[in-house]
Design a protein around this nucleic acid. Sequence first.
DNA 1: TTGGAATGTCAACAAGGCTGACATATTCTG
DNA 2: CAGAATATGTCAGCCTTGTTGACATTCCAA
Lengths: 166, 166
Amino acid sequence: MAEGAGGQALLFLTDEQLRKGIEAMFFAYRGFTADPDRILAEKSYGRAHHRAIHFIHRAPGTTVNNLLATLGVTKQSLNRVLRSLIEDGLVESRVGRSDKRERNLHLTEAGQALERELSDAQRERMRAAYRTAGPEAVAGFRQVLEAMMDDDQRRQYERLSEAPRR
Amino acid sequence: MAEGAGGQALLFLTDEQLRKGIEAMFFAYRGFTADPDRILAEKSYGRAHHRAIHFIHRAPGTTVNNLLATLGVTKQSLNRVLRSLIEDGLVESRVGRSDKRERNLHLTEAGQALERELSDAQRERMRAAYRTAGPEAVAGFRQVLEAMMDDDQRRQYERLSEAPRR
DNA sequence: TTGGAATGTCAACAAGGCTGACATATTCTG
DNA sequence: CAGAATATGTCAGCCTTGTTGACATTCCAA
């Protein structure tokens, strides 16, 4: 550290502070996924199913290709998950109207029910954390997370908010 | 939303805000692991190896059981990873002095070199994010993450800071 | 001294990533 | 229209990393 016992203003960049941040991410992510994981385990699903359900819910009618880009996995990997969700009647795959090569993905009633169950649990944890930390902490939390994303990921992330809610 | 168009002070608890937080965690975690993942892929290791190396570095001489509790996996799962690290000469496993059932784990020179390479990459990303977001954001970031952990995880997390550096 | 608890290892299985190859339907382009 | 490009689905096979079950060793307390 060139600054030596540098000013308070720079303290947050010490290796020690960075390490704490790294470990906080590790442990917090476990907490973040713990509640949905429990629900999913009962139904013999995994995180992959959760992610698919979440983003289909967020962007109803999205295409397979779209989902692929958001999730950052291969189509073979996504397909396996999607197939089981369709077989189980949680997701519906409709041939595209304008482009018949595409498949538009929607949650069925049952799919929406599971989505709600999962996101309720996850939101509850997030809500509790937000409440404990307070509104200013929340703003900082989001700023750091956004700065930590790759550019591609940040684009995906921002695009979701602009998404036309139909 | 019982508050209706509630005061600014409560805005951060809307479902929309919570959802953004959830998605931010998802995308940010990908960024968080991206750099180490690239380095590990070259060497045919995975995240599990990274985690083991990280926490052995943090608490040299730790036992398998200890590491188990920190990582939250089964001992069989950890053992596989540990075995390959030992075979490759990155980790040394010494029979415990007082209790011969235990194994004390240490990084070798080569292990420390890899640890440094991985943590340099990850710290660099964290440093950049911290710099972009600023010190107040960092404080909030940490507060929210800590509030998101399970109690057990938070205890593990806090214990690491108290760890006697030998 | 002996039986239970703690610690660690080995074997086998499953989920969910990955690559590669290939089939099909559809759309676009020259 | 012919052929290239695109979107999707599927099969096979591999790897990492979770899981459970069985077992060996070591320690400790009754």
